[in-house]
Design a protein around this nucleic acid. Structure first.
Lengths: 220, 220
DNA sequence: GTCTATACGGGGATAGAC
DNA sequence: GTCTATCCCCGTATAGAC
């Protein structure tokens, strides 16, 4: 930001916020320039056009996601612990990068992920594959039940935290909060719940879930 | 459609498709008119303006959702069976109305559900409340474990099928399908899996899940 | 109720000075 | 590298004829 001539980064940052907040169409070049504190024409110096800028934003976002995600997944191979760590990493990443979920969802519905196939394929080959592998390991050593398809189970696991963040306004209403939506603590609480829910679904016997029962009441 | 002077319905139908496909901003009045087979100016005869039309589309969509959703939920109070029925109803509704998930997601990210608070509150008071109640009943009679918050569990249940449809293009890539995404049969398969996953998470003992183990391999 | 014609504004993009 | 000025298209919305 303070770098000389790093207007480019400033533009990318501003564009990411704007695209996430309002979507591709609704975001105007002029607004991005304003938010970045630079001139409209400068966007065309650094990027081919609006689409090119958008594409660059997506690439950068996905790169960070995979890098940080993989870091959160390193460590032992104990299956239940790995699942718990995965959910925690997913939740903390979304909390740290609130723009990302909206950005990705928009890309999904706006272009059927056409501008993001490369990034998603990368995620599929790294993060998602890793999660599936963990589930298979758990099934092989008997801690996880074997009558669930590992890949569908992986989607079930991912969906909980993802949906929570995508549908935050609706979730707020469902849980009886006001328009402000659930507070960050509630998101943390849900992440804990999601991990427990997933492990309960996966476990092959009830004993393996002999953890401190977290009866987490959501405050109204 | 064949009704005389029911251009109004034709406009609403076309608008629903367009808004779902491209979003509010990207959808042009002219395109809606074209898709409805009427003139541009006619939209302003029936609706105040673009926003008014959008609002009417949302209202109609939510009305149908609640009506049909409640119908699918009637019947016995056996908790596990009710959960299964809920997931099945959710999946079949989304399959029958493919535009709805995208429409709602767009409203969530575009306006933080501002235009849909009434509809969502209605869903919260009917469908969601019903699902929570079912879970509580199951916990009370001992078939469901008691260390899960019923409302968070309800969100976990809903999230699976919802996410599947929202993220369909990404899911397609994750599961190794081509750009076309998963076929409808795979969606049905996932709905079955989601119900089994949810019941496994909820059940207080393993015996209660002595159903035909559906080892559903997803074809590549 | 339905159409034609048009005004009006705003957004993407470029030329060219500095 | 960064800015000023400007062009042109297209989308919303209205007036008014039929």
């Amino acid at each position: 930001m303070a770098e000389p001539t790093d207007s480019r980064a400033a533009i990318l940052d501003a564009a990411e916020r704007c695209f996430a907040d309002q979507g591709f169409q609704a975001t105007t070049i002029k607004r991005i320039a304003g938010a970045a504190g630079v001139n409209t024409a400068l966007l065309y110096y650094y990027f081919s056009d609006k689409q090119g800028l958008y594409h660059s934003v997506l690439e950068r976002a996905f790169g960070g996601l995979v890098a940080e995600g993989l870091r959160g997944l390193e460590g032992g191979l104990d299956a239940p612990e790995a699942v718990r760590r995965f959910v925690r990493a997913q939740a903390s990443y979304m909390r740290a990068h609130p723009a990302l979920p909206r950005l990705l969802v928009r890309e999904l519905v706006d272009h059927r992920a056409a501008h993001a196939t490369a990034g998603i394929s990368h995620v599929a080959a790294t993060l998602f594959a890793r999660l599936c592998e963990v589930i298979r390991v758990g099934q092989a050593d008997g801690t996880f039940r074997r009558d669930l398809d590992p890949r569908l189970a992986a989607i079930s696991i991912v969906s909980q935290v993802a949906y929570w963040h995508i549908a935050r306004p609706a979730v707020g209403i469902l849980l009886g909060f006001d328009a402000a939506g659930p507070a960050p603590e509630v998101s943390d609480q849900f992440a804990q719940h999601a991990a427990a829910f997933a492990l309960a679904a996966l476990s092959s016997d009830r004993r393996s879930s002999d953890r401190p029962p977290l009866r987490s009441e959501v405050a109204r």
